[in-house]
Structure formats: C-alpha cells, structure tokens
C-alpha cells in the first residue's frame, strides 16, 4: 500500500484534517509498529509508480515455534517485572505478552516472588547498539575523583553489572587502555559513531581479564592477590559468634593452642576485598590467621575505624591531602590494590 492508500482506506486516518496531521499520525504509527517488532518494509516498484509502498514482511513477522511449560511462563512472568518503571520495563512486558499468546497459563511456583534489579540508565540502549555494530562512542564522563566532566572516546565491549551498578567496559581511545565507566557518571547523550569503527580486539566474558570488583574504588579492577597461592583463608571465630561467616565455611575445626576455645574456619577467598570487608565488620569475633594479605586488609580497616573516635566530619578546618589525580584511575577501574595504602589510612 502507498501512503495515499493507507490514508484513504485505513480507519482512523480520515480524522487527519490536513497533510501535516496525517504525516504526524503516519510517522507515529510506523514507530509504534517497529517498536512492536512488526517488520514494516518499503518498496519502490512499477506497481507503486513514484510512491513508496509499505508492506508488512510476513516472512519476518512470526514468532518461531516455542513451547513454554506452565512453570517456564511463570518464571518469565517474574522476570518481566524486574525493570519496574525503568525504560526496559515496557519492552520486557511486551515480550512476555507475545510469549503468552502461545503459552499455557503460568503455574504458581514463583508466585509470591518479587525481583527488582537496579535498572541501567537510558544510555544502555545506545551503548548496546554500539557494541553490536562495533562502533566508537563519545560521551562526557565525570569520574569519582574528577571535579568536571571530560569527553571520552571509547570502543565499548560489554555492559556489566557489579554491586548494583551498571558499567560499560571498553577500550578508552584517549588513554589507550581498557577501562570501566559507570553509566550513572556519563553526562549528556552518548554519540554513536559509524558501524565497524572499533578496531581493538574485544575483551569479553566475566572470567579471565575481567576480575572481581574492587568495591573500595567503586569500580572494577583486577583481583589483587590472586597469585593462586591463597585461595583458602583460615580464620579464628569466637564461639557462638559470626554466624554469617560460619555459613561460608568450607570446614570448621576446634582451635588449638593459642586458639583454644575458638573455632577455626576455612573460607574460600574469592574477592579478597569483599571478604576483608565482611570479616572486619565482625570486629573482635573474627581473627584472620592467613593469608597475610587478607589479615593485613582486615587490620587496615580496623585501624582506620579505631581512629574514628577522634575525628569528626571536618569539612572546614585543616586541609587534607589532595587526591585529585591518582596514579591509577579509580574512577574507571584501573588496577587497584586490595589493601589501601597506609598514606590514606593515616589521614584524619
């Protein structure tokens, strides 16, 4: 059908009082159809003369055959609520509706379950399409330690969630290095360059090159201390204490000698930073025996906290050391030490 055919024969368009109004309605409806995944194709051929013909491509219309069980459609119903109110919410619910068209009633296995994960900001969409088309993106970015936004040019590889925050991982073309950028720190719009403009080999997958989070930096760094030697930690735990730590124990034995009366637990270290935070949080209920780097990380935290008795939140008064441009870039997740330096620990 040509645009004129549509205007003449499809219900609703006769309400358009003039050409402009019709054009607006027509454009709006095309957008809606494409949002819905309806493959609207344009044709120019003899049959349509000089006009463009519009047709729904039925070959690309159908949902492939899918047989979802009641339990599976139940699982999808819970998943579709995840983005509550965010920009991914509507497309997720539309996808569920389409699948319901060919599915039996959901079973109640997951009824009573509510899952809400922190949604990415709207910059998710252009970044995802840039990754798919291997394009370079440009955006303003305000790092954690920088006072003003700076322009970044990045070849994006992957969108990553860590500790409830969204990041884009990619190759920073200005710094010529792999970097993570927190989506909420991107300022303004993301400009997507030409398809195929990215040239650096991708690093993807959450294993290998991309280590666990360095939470203290609020970003993602490589796991430090993963020299392979200390995957298991030994900690002494006071009786009846540190229940949360006990749940993680690979093994527990009664303490001996100096640790008589305590329990000695073996723990998988995983992310040493996270584990140090958990253990420090249990204060005198837990003492780290080994490895030394974990022990040091916990003691460093305890020393800093012990110093809090003597300082207030002095926003006026003595100047603290500026941390304006550290050697590594904590904002974007360069290599971070898991044990903060003593220089920082001594401040107050």
């Amino acid at each position: 059908m040509t645009k004129a055919d549509v205007r003449a024969t499809v219900n609703g368009y006769s309400q358009a009082s003039n050409d402009d109004a019709f054009e607006r309605m027509f454009e709006r409806d095309k957008v809606t159809l494409r949002e819905l995944g309806i493959p609207l194709v344009t044709l120019t051929d003899d049959a349509h003369g000089d006009d463009i013909g519009y047709r729904i491509d039925l070959d690309g219309y159908d949902l492939p055959r899918v047989d979802l069980s009641p339990a599976e459609i139940g699982v999808l119903s819970v998943a579709a609520q995840v983005w509550d109110g965010a920009h991914l919410d509507l497309p997720a619910r539309r996808a569920l509706t389409k699948l319901r068209a060919v599915s039996p009633a959901a079973s109640g296995e997951l009824s009573g379950h509510v899952l809400r994960i922190p949604p990415p900001s709207a910059t998710f969409d252009p970044l995802l399409s840039a990754i798919a088309s291997r394009a370079v993106v440009t955006f303003g970015y305000r790092g954690a330690t920088s006072s003003a936004p700076a322009q970044r040019r990045v070849e994006p590889w992957q969108l990553v969630v860590r500790d409830g925050a969204w990041y884009v991982l990619g190759h920073d073309l200005v710094r010529d290095a792999e970097r993570m950028f927190r989506l909420t720190r991107i300022t303004g719009a993301v400009k997507v360059g030409a398809r195929g403009g990215a040239t650096h080999p991708r690093v993807t997958g959450t294993g290998g090159g991309l280590g666990a989070t360095s939470r203290a930096s609020g970003s993602i760094g490589r796991t430090v201390g993963d020299d392979g030697a200390a995957d298991v930690a030994r900690v002494a735990v006071r009786p009846e204490r540190a229940g949360e730590v006990r749940l993680r124990a690979l093994a527990a034995t009664p303490g001996e000698a100096a640790w008589s009366g305590w329990d000695v637990l073996e723990l998988a270290v995983g992310n040493a930073d996270d584990l140090a935070g958990l253990l420090a949080g249990h204060t005198d209920a837990v003492v780290v025996l080994e490895p030394p780097h974990l022990r040091e990380a916990v003691v460093t935290r305890l020393r800093a906290a012990a110093g809090l008795a003597t300082v207030g939140t002095a926003t006026t008064g003595t100047e603290t050391d500026p941390v304006s441009e550290p050697a590594t870039d904590p904002a974007t997740g360069d290599i971070q030490s898991s044990a903060p330096t003593t220089g920082e620990a001594g401040r107050g």
Binding site: L88, D89, P91, A92, A95, L96, D125, L128
Partner: peptide, 11 residues
C-alpha cells in the same frame, strides 16, 4: 508476533 530486538534484550 516475533520479539523485537529491544524486547528480546530486556526480557
């Protein structure tokens, strides 16, 4: 109707 790209990603 098939899933659109944005719909598939979101779900």
């Amino acid at each position: 109707l098939r899933l659109g790209p944005g719909e598939a990603v979101a779900l």
